[in-house]
Each structure stands twice: as C-alpha cells, then as structure tokens.
C-alpha cells in the first residue's frame, strides 16, 4: 500500500487541525461515547438540537488519524442540517465505506476524500466511528434520551 492512497492531504489537515473539537458543548442535549476496543479509538460526541436541526456538534477523543479526521469532517458536513437529513448523509457515508459511490458527494464535503479508506478494510471502522456516533446521537435524541455508549466489538 502507499501512504498517499490512505492519507490524503485533506485527511491529514483534519487530523492536525480538527474542526469542532471540544470537550464540552453549551446547552448539550445528547452525549454519546463510542469506542472501538480493537484499535483503541475513543470518541465523545455532543449534540445540541434546535428546531429539528443540528445546532451544535462537537467531538473529542483519542484514536488514529483516520478516526479523528473523519469525525472532524463529519461535524463539518452535518452541522446545521435537519436531523433526518443528517441521518441520510450518515447512511451515504456508510455505504461509501463499503464501496458504493456517494449519492451526495457535495453534501459529504471533505467526507468524500475518505473514499479510498474503503480499500483498507481494517481502517473502515476508524473512518466510520464519527458517523456512526452522530447517527446514534440523533437516534438517542429522537428517542428522548440524553446519553448512550456503544462499544464495537469486531
């Protein structure tokens, strides 16, 4: 493999200078914690909803560059979106990681550059972590709860 296939410059930018990375969020409605014990990726995601839209979203965590960069790109792509729209976009990203071309490449914004990760099966989980967390945060919110933790075990 070559490093450049996996680590596009935009991915490294998100890793080095993440967007919306913070340990707390004013007026937080939901906090989810997702972890990937196998590789040791950890992610905290905090969501604030106003009028059915993602009004605030921050992540914090520890993990490889792919997991952290993808979470950063995710926040950028879903902030300000309606909840069901964000859920749809998360599904688009999930399919992208399984080799299906994105149906909304523009809306995924920097998320599309993770397309190459699909060729590295062991890293797909890393790229998905942030997106699965936002999906869970929204579903948790819609279910009327405020906290949820998920551990991926394969």
């Amino acid at each position: 493999m070559t490093m450049d296939d996996l680590y596009q410059e935009i991915i490294l930018d998100h890793y080095r200078r993440p967007k919306n990375r913070a340990p707390a969020l004013d007026g937080e409605d939901v906090h989810v914690h997702h972890s990937n014990p196998l590789c040791g990726d950890e992610l905290d995601l905090r969501l604030r909803v106003r009028d059915g839209r993602i009004d605030g979203l921050v992540f914090d965590g520890e993990g490889c560059s792919i997991s952290q960069a993808s979470a950063s790109a995710m926040t950028d792509a879903v902030l300000e979106r309606d909840l069901d729209d964000a859920l749809e976009l998360a599904e688009d990203f999930r399919l992208l990681m399984h080799g299906t071309p994105a149906t909304r490449p523009d809306d995924l914004r920097d998320g599309v550059v993770f397309e190459g990760v699909a060729r590295f099966p062991v890293r797909v989980k890393c790229a998905l972590l942030g997106w699965m967390a936002v999906r869970d945060a929204i579903e948790t919110y819609l279910a009327g709860a405020s906290d949820h933790a998920v551990t991926y075990d394969d």
Partner: peptide, 27 residues
C-alpha cells in the same frame, strides 16, 4: 497513533504489531 505508525512502517516493509496485544488489564 500506533495504528498510523503501523501503516507507515508497513510502507517501509517493516511488520510490527499495534494495538492492545490481548492484554487490556495491562493497557
């Protein structure tokens, strides 16, 4: 991150193990 290090070393032909080494209490 060890995962990223492992990927870089792989590109140099170097095989190392990264992760929790099946020793989570120690980690």
């Amino acid at each position: 991150h060890p995962h990223d290090l492992g990927a870089m070393l792989d590109s140099y032909g170097v095989c190392i193990r990264v992760g929790h080494h099946c020793a989570k209490p120690l980690m």
